[in-house]
Write a protein that binds this DNA or RNA. Structure first.
Lengths: 178, 178
DNA sequence: CAAAAACATGTAAATAATTACATGTATAAA
DNA sequence: TTTATACATGTAATTATTTACATGTTTTTG
């Protein structure tokens, strides 16, 4: 029962831009794409093996310091073809992820329930922090706005900023209704 | 390595409102909470067994038609205590779900890439449809706005509507930048 | 009335994801 | 120089999730 294994495409997409190590790939999810996907190193390393076995990528060993050799992965032409195929294919309707906080809200019925205010305030703080961080990322990485050679990256960062801003405003509105 | 198993809380929360069958619980994810969580019946039925073994819920058999007996699940007091504990606990920062479409965008660098327009248009249609559906749900279920006894439900529906509206506007903006 | 759809409940099998365990090297900080 | 942190790469074990398989009953539709 093959599911769609999107992680393979993400890996191919990332190394298509430039060759990367397994560690680089893992760290990538701490940054911008981590707002829209998640993967741990323990998933990534076996996946790299699988993709290499399918000739979608190859690796070269490079020497760091005195002893360590790291593996740097490069996409193959076969890999590029598959990546492009994925990019061109219609994207199935997504299911919007899991928001535990929202589920909690659903189960609180009374507008005057005393649990509401602390919940909303706590989340507001988290989301404000995230909004600030993302806004900063956007101005740091794209100081003059969209540019023609990093357009997709710009788009998704604006998306993340808008999402957090909207979430923040919604939380504030909810607090005002108590 | 216990993860947090949020599904158990969702099940408890749902049957706390009123007793439900396994089938009802499964169908619940087709509706409002499905915008924020996902579960299949094959996950739900074993979970119900586990929760009953832990005395967090019980079931009664009720007769339908001539032969069929369905199981209707009711939360126990132990279950209620656990549910309340979860509701009161701080909610860990969520990871925002997986958006395949956004990942595709990330890998498209050139603003004039011919793949962009069809992608954006396709997603715009999907999200407009979803926005319409959710807006309708909101007006159908809450014709006069927030009410004091279904407040949480109202909040999350407005959240879903806003999210889709924001997504739609973002897609439109992106299209105007091509 | 027959067929289709909805209701109802499982289990098995496989993939995906997370936590845990493990080892070692190189660089930065104290 | 030593310690702490980051870099680097695995594997094992477990939980979570999805797809597949399966059977039967009741209600709705044609």
């Amino acid at each position: 029962m093959a599911q769609r294994n999107i992680l393979q495409f993400i890996i191919l997409g990332l190394i298509h831009e430039r060759p990367l190590t397994g560690y680089d790939l893992t760290k990538a999810f701490d940054n911008d794409i981590g707002e829209f996907w998640s993967a741990k190193h323990s998933q990534i390393y076996p996946q790299l093996k699988t993709l290499e076995a399918k000739a979608l990528l190859t690796h070269t060993d490079e020497v760091t310091g005195e002893k360590l050799t790291r593996k740097r992965y490069t996409i193959t032409e076969t890999g590029q073809a598959l990546l492009n195929q994925w990019l061109r294919a219609p994207t199935p309707e997504s299911h919007n992820g899991k928001d535990e906080f929202v589920l909690k809200l659903y189960f609180i019925q009374q507008q005057n329930d005393p649990r509401l205010r602390p919940m909303l305030i706590e989340q507001l703080m988290l989301h404000e922090q995230r909004l600030n961080h993302l806004t900063q990322q956007l101005t740091t990485k794209f100081p003059t706005g969209a540019n023609a050679t990093d357009f997709g990256h710009f788009l998704i960062l604006t998306h993340a900023v808008r999402r957090e801003r909207d979430y923040t405003v919604w939380l504030q509105d909810a607090l005002h209704q108590l």
